[in-house]
Simulated assay, not measured.
Amino acid sequence: MFYNAHSNSLSASITLAMHILHVYKDYFPVLGGMENHIRVVAEGLAERGHQVTVAVSNTYPKTEIERRNGVAIIKAAQWLRKASTPISPMSLPLSWRVPADIIHLHHPFPPGDLLYWLRRGKAKLVITYQSDIVRQRRLLQLYRPLLTRTLNAADRIIAASPQYIQTSPWLAPHADKCRVIPLSVDTERFNQLDHAAIQSLREQVAAPMVLFVGRFRHYKGLHFLLEALPKIPNAKLVLVGIGPEEARLRDLAQRLDVGERIVWAGEVPDQALPNYYAAADVFVLPSHLRAEAFGIVQLEALAAGIPIVSTELGTGTSFVNAHSQTGFVVPPADPAALARAINVLLENPGLRAQFGANGRQRASSTFSPQRMLDQIEELYREIVS
């Protein structure tokens, strides 16, 4: 470690620069909420004068090392991917060479635990705990001893909401060293709109527009949203994303006879995504399992100023979407409740506008990138000092 002046941060004071190693499975340009979150953290801390390295797996069997926006990125060759976990043996020897005052694991990711225990040395351990393992129960039984040991060893554990600390059987025993640091959204991005593209989208849909953005995964509850659609007259559903559930969802749409009321938008480039939010009347996150720990897409909806309908999972989803302030929170796995909430919003433009304005204010005050970076940097200094 060494003393260095911030060159591009909020503070011009002399501060202690740190070597920080982030460990996860993927990194931007791989699309995903956590991948983008790690990029914001890594680039933001690098801009503040810290030495930041990100160790991830590549998307193919070739090792690549690059530097982008002040961040060193190690992408170890991926041999295969099992249970959503990449197998990249070279990540261990490559990461051993990286100096680190802080090793920051993003959980759950078993190879990250192994990396920490094989090279921990004097580095402090910070864990961002994304979610409990819900589906891979057999994997969890194998992973349990290692996960328990790593959580016990952590100097600090970051959760994105107080609800997750209270309701997770893994975090509750470590509540004394948990810290709530919400994820963030770049609100300015949602002010940079292509109004011609927005008008084109509205003309294409030609109906009140209900929007979903995200991967089509088992826990997203999209089948419940499709089952709600017959109870939402006149509206159309725009689904932005792809994923392993797509074939089943398309089949269900045909069986429910709602296929013509769904726009399958596929993957949308990052720069075009704000136009979809701006064109929409209501955003819906219908997830029904705890694997949905936060819902970063809800932050995007807040920043875009559109009301949200989400579900109560005992996780951070209802921390982001404040019930009766920025939208409605309904029970999970309940198509009728989804339909009722969506209909209330579609039938009340004044309420939509009020919730949207509240959402913009909440995004800028509670979920700003600078506030998140300040909190993470303060946590690092707390344990290093």
Rank of each mutant, 00 (worst) to 15 (best):
S9K: 07
S9F: 04
L16H: 08
M18K: 10
H19R: 15
Y27V: 00
L31S: 13
E43P: 10
E47W: 00
S57R: 00
S57T: 00
N58P: 00
N58G: 07
T63H: 03
E64C: 02
A72Q: 14
L80C: 10
S88W: 04
S91N: 03
A100V: 12
A100E: 06
D101W: 04
L105E: 06
H106W: 05
H107T: 13
L118Y: 12
R119T: 13
K122G: 15
A123I: 07
K124Y: 02
V126P: 02
I127W: 13
Y129T: 06
I133L: 15
V134N: 14
Q136D: 14
Q141L: 13
Y143G: 07
P145R: 07
L147N: 09
L151I: 06
R156H: 11
I165K: 03
P169Q: 08
H174M: 06
A175H: 14
D176L: 05
K177E: 10
C178M: 11
R189L: 12
F190R: 06
Q192H: 15
H195L: 15
A196R: 15
I198P: 11
L201E: 04
F216E: 08
H218G: 09
K220H: 02
G221S: 06
L222F: 05
N234G: 10
K236P: 09
L237Q: 08
L249G: 04
L252M: 11
L256Y: 06
D257K: 15
L273V: 08
D281E: 12
V284Q: 10
V297I: 05
Q298H: 05
L299M: 01
A301L: 01
A303R: 01
A303D: 02
A304E: 05
I306P: 07
P307N: 05
I308N: 02
I308F: 04
V309P: 04
S310M: 00
F319T: 09
V320P: 03
T326V: 06
V330Y: 01
A337Q: 09
A337L: 01
N348V: 02
Q354T: 15
F355E: 05
G359T: 00
L373E: 08
D374G: 09
E377I: 07
E378Q: 14
E378N: 10
V384M: 07
